[in-house]
């Protein structure tokens, strides 16, 4: 009973590597974002920012470096929100019945799917980081070997907990839905505000007050705080804004993400308990 989630995980990973097109596109797409959007935006922003003086002693980073963290977060968000869709397919094709009539604890479906979603996100994130560094994102610049390892682990921790939160949410929605179209609609609806009301592409400080509050508590922002902290450092200047993260800021962001994941897990658990699949 204890390893039920491993069975679900095993199957989902089989499917992940089996659909070659999907596998390939899911790995290529974030790199393309970074390549096209990243290079285009950074060349404009960096030109605009060229005249802004950098205070002495502050580490200034280019826009590509700044937004690479946002692309990591965006990719994780998309992958995680769509991660639950397999549950809907299983439900519609009757495959879920086999699982629900088995002695496996139903929570393990949620855990198994979440774990495979996290694995997929890790693979993507590592690819984006490697590709980002390749095209000029200054990640881990001036870090020692130990700091790089710690930085990568820190980023993966933030990616992992963030991904879990949205995978639980996705699983909970998927098990309640009837059609993939409906699910797609809801996911698209969610992605927009979560992505744009965050610090992924720009600082949130100049937002109107209401949007600013929303953005500060957005799990997306909390996650990006962590990524920037571990990839760039606790103190840097980007887009004319001086970012300073203290350890407790980062700990608080991580704690926020844990709370988010806990809430969405509860939601998924509740939806699964209610689910009737025949």
């Amino acid at each position: 009973m204890t390893y039920g989630f491993a069975t679900i995980y095993w199957r989902d990973m089989i499917r992940f590597v089996r659909f070659k097109t999907l596998l390939f596109s899911s790995l290529l797409q974030p790199a393309l974002w970074l390549a096209f959007f990243g290079i285009a935006m950074s060349s404009s922003f960096d030109r605009l920012m060229a005249g802004v003086p950098v205070p002495p002693g502050v580490h200034a980073v280019g826009y590509l470096t700044f937004m690479a963290a946002g692309i990591i977060a965006m990719t994780t968000l998309f992958t995680s929100l769509f991660g639950g869709i397999v549950i809907l397919f299983d439900k519609n094709w009757g495959l879920m019945r086999e699982i629900l009539a088995s002695p496996m604890n139903r929570n393990h479906i949620i855990f198994g799917i979440a774990l495979s979603g996290v694995t997929k996100s890790f693979i993507q994130v590592i690819i984006i980081m490697a590709f980002g560094i390749l095209i000029g994102a200054a990640f881990f610049a001036g870090f020692g070997a130990m700091q790089v390892v710690l930085g990568v682990l820190g980023i993966l921790a933030f990616v992992g907990i963030f991904a879990l939160g949205f995978l639980f949410l996705s699983a909970g929605i998927a098990v309640s839905m009837e059609s993939p179209e409906g699910l797609q609609g809801i996911i698209t609806l969610l992605t927009m505000p979560i992505f744009f009301a965050s610090n992924a592409l720009y600082p949130v400080d100049s937002f109107p007050e209401f949007l600013k509050v929303l953005s500060i508590y957005n799990p997306m922002t909390l996650m990006i705080n962590g990524i920037r902290y571990f990839a760039i450092g606790p103190d840097f200047l980007a887009l004319g804004k001086h970012y300073v993260y203290t350890t407790s800021d980062i700990a608080l962001s991580f704690f926020g993400l844990i709370c988010f994941a806990a809430i969405t897990f509860w939601f998924a658990w509740w939806r699964f308990k209610k689910a009737v699949v025949t």
Binding site: T7, R11, I14, R18, R97, E98
Partner: peptide, 20 residues
């Protein structure tokens, strides 16, 4: 109720694992 994209062996293996 078979997953179209799993092999015959995987279907049975998955089931056996589900039932511990």
């Amino acid at each position: 109720t078979l997953d179209r994209d799993m092999t015959v062996w995987e279907i049975l293996e998955f089931h056996g694992r589900l039932y511990n």
